[in-house]
Design a protein around this nucleic acid. Structure first.
Lengths: 238, 238
DNA sequence: CAGTGTGAACCACTTCACAGCC
DNA sequence: GGCTGTGAAGTGGTTCACACTG
């Protein structure tokens, strides 16, 4: 195996998942004119431990100053670079119901690196409607649209039944990154990356924790005196 | 202590996060009239390994039949029970923009266990609009609404700037489970459970993987120099 | 015998604690 | 002196492989 010294690959998935949070906090700090932060401060803002933050950042390289902290701008730039946000990612949304509209209008989209280049929906009533400067077109236009200006990321916001078909078409034209909001498991080739966001899954997880709390509460025995000051041992964490 | 023998608590978070997926697949199978599945089949449908599935299910109890598999109905019921879906969870949505509308209309909501009891938005133009049988009301009505029919889960679908205030009010009246769609980190007391769903985080994670793939692709010759890629062994996984 | 349930090995991530540097 | 960067220890989750059972 290789112990390549000069590399910055091999960033753990768990770290990658937190980088966007760090970036968001850094952007806010930058807006407020803050020039420098310590790992302690930034970690507090994001809601992680400072050791975790430092370890995460160490995967990107050494961008802090010992005894001082991190320069906000520099760190933000390095995280952006690591995430690939210094380049432009053309995004297409398929399915322009309420969710599709919400996504298209979502401010976070426009910000860093992402650019909506196409909106698809076969509903005749939506044909031609312009959202955020982009006109909704029938999904069959995908190949032509893609040929014109290649799509990097496809967002599926259709009903579950349509999701797999839409996904297949996207993969067909060459889209390799898919964000799926439909409650369906998509099957794709190995080289395609799918992430799923699902409301009902999240609700069910909340319900589980809520139930646990409820069950714990009516556990009379152990509560010798401690209903109030829960030991800081382990709160229900995300 | 806490070695309660008669309990089946202590389900790992990672398992809890997968149970909703299992449940969804089981429901689909049930619809198709399938009566029994093996761990192999169900795992394939969900996209996990069969050993993982069996281990997960073992945390709930022993509901399979050796040499045969799992009875679809029974297993679905047990998972529902474990997740707390056999009871009713009253949900309120705050912020009825496109996203709020999308969430309110989301079919997954209505299904198991979740019931929308209130929709809030201060926008005068939305006042009184009825979505899925529930009228939108000003957020200041929260305490009254909650007193009338307590809310278990609050969904925040407001802009980021309003999120913390909305969250504080929810916590104030006693809501202990919050699903946050706003791109903001909420601070809450220990006993409140917050889950965040964030579009731009997901996009950024996709962008990272896409970039990795791109870098890997132009590796064939240039490994000698500082560029380095990764071994082609394992593809980018979620 | 086919397929579950599970100890044990393995692996990834987190946390600790401190050396190193500004 | 203060804070980063990081080996080492600790924790939790996954995978293996097989004993067990209907």
């Amino acid at each position: 195996m290789s112990a390549d010294p000069a590399v910055r690959r091999e960033i753990p998935d768990a770290t990658v998942a937190r980088l966007p949070e760090y970036l968001r906090s850094l952007s806010r700090l930058a807006e407020q004119g803050v020039l420098s932060v310590s790992s302690e401060e930034l970690a507090a803002a994001v809601g992680v431990r400072s050791a975790q933050l430092r370890k995460d950042l160490s995967h990107l390289g050494s961008y802090g100053v010992r005894g001082v902290g991190y320069e906000v701008d520099t760190l933000a730039l390095e995280i952006s670079r690591a995430l690939g946000l210094t380049q432009d990612w053309p995004v297409a949304i398929v399915g322009m119901g309420n969710l599709g509209h919400a996504l298209a209008s979502y401010s976070g989209f426009v910000t860093k690196g992402f650019r909506i280049v196409a909106l698809f929906d076969d509903e005749p009533g939506l044909r031609g409607e312009v959202v955020q400067g982009v006109a909704i077109q029938p999904f069959r236009e995908l190949p032509a649209r893609h040929a014109l200006d290649p799509i990097s990321i496809g967002v599926i916001a259709t009903p579950a039944v349509a999701a797999q078909t839409v996904c297949d078409r996207l993969v067909e034209v060459g889209v390799r990154s898919i964000l799926n909001f439909a409650p369906a498991v998509l099957s794709v080739p190995d080289d395609v990356d799918v992430r799923r966001v699902d409301l009902s899954t999240e609700l069910q997880i909340l319900a589980f924790h809520a139930q646990q709390k409820a069950l714990g509460a009516l556990e009379p025995v152990a509560a010798a005196r401690g209903i109030d000051g829960r030991t800081p041992s382990e709160a229900v964490a995300t």
